[in-house]
Amino acid sequence: MNKFKYEDIENEIKKIFIELLQLDKKVEELDSNENLFLEEYGYSSIDALELIIMIEDAFEIAIPEEKLNTDLLESVKSLTDYVYSLLQDK
């Protein structure tokens, strides 16, 4: 049984994103559908890799390399959907 609720995963991913980019935002201020590659955040490919590593550590999962693409990293929602599906399979 999955111990994580969808909302909990979403909030944790937001926290990781805020921490990684040192944003002056609260979790509730980050729009889950907003494109994560917005230049206003200064988001780079190195940040993307760090984000994936932090998410893998937080949820004790491994995201296969073939899944690492712009669709997955498009938004908090796309990441949450994928992590939730991986955790459902655990």
Rank of each mutant, 00 (worst) to 15 (best):
M1A: 06
M1R: 00
M1S: 07
N2H: 08
N2D: 08
N2A: 09
N2I: 09
K3F: 00
K3E: 12
F4G: 10
F4P: 06
K5D: 06
D8S: 09
I9G: 06
I9R: 05
I9E: 05
E10R: 14
N11D: 10
N11A: 09
N11K: 07
E12R: 15
K14D: 04
K14V: 01
K15Q: 15
K15F: 13
K15Y: 14
I16D: 03
I16S: 05
F17Y: 03
I18T: 09
E19T: 14
E19C: 08
E19S: 15
L20N: 04
L21F: 03
L21S: 10
L21Q: 11
Q22H: 11
Q22P: 00
Q22T: 08
Q22R: 13
L23I: 07
D24G: 02
D24H: 04
D24N: 11
D24L: 02
D24Q: 08
D24W: 00
K25A: 06
K25D: 02
K26F: 11
V27E: 01
E29N: 10
E29R: 08
L30Q: 01
D31K: 06
D31V: 03
N33I: 10
N33G: 15
N35C: 11
N35M: 09
L36D: 01
F37M: 15
L38G: 15
L38P: 00
E39R: 13
E39D: 15
G42A: 08
G42Q: 08
G42T: 07
Y43P: 05
Y43D: 06
S45P: 10
S45K: 14
S45E: 15
D47N: 15
D47R: 11
D47K: 13
A48M: 10
L49Q: 13
L49P: 00
E50T: 13
L51I: 07
L51M: 09
I52Q: 02
I52G: 00
I53Y: 11
I53V: 11
I53D: 09
M54L: 14
M54A: 14
I55Q: 02
I55F: 02
E56F: 05
E56H: 09
A58G: 05
F59Q: 02
F59L: 04
E60T: 13
E60L: 14
I61A: 04
I61G: 01
A62E: 15
A62L: 15
I63G: 03
I63Y: 06
I63D: 03
E65T: 08
E66A: 04
K67N: 12
K67P: 00
K67T: 06
L68Y: 10
L68H: 08
L68Q: 08
L68W: 05
D71F: 07
L72S: 06
L72D: 04
L73Y: 03
L73P: 03
E74L: 04
E74P: 01
S75I: 06
S75T: 08
V76E: 05
V76W: 03
V76C: 05
K77A: 13
K77Y: 12
K77N: 14
K77V: 07
S78H: 13
S78W: 12
S78C: 13
L79N: 11
L79S: 11
T80R: 01
D81M: 06
D81C: 05
Y82T: 09
Y82K: 09
Y84T: 00
S85T: 11
S85W: 00
L86Q: 05
L86V: 07
L86M: 12
L87M: 01
L87P: 02
L87N: 02
Q88L: 13
Q88W: 01
Q88H: 06
K90F: 11
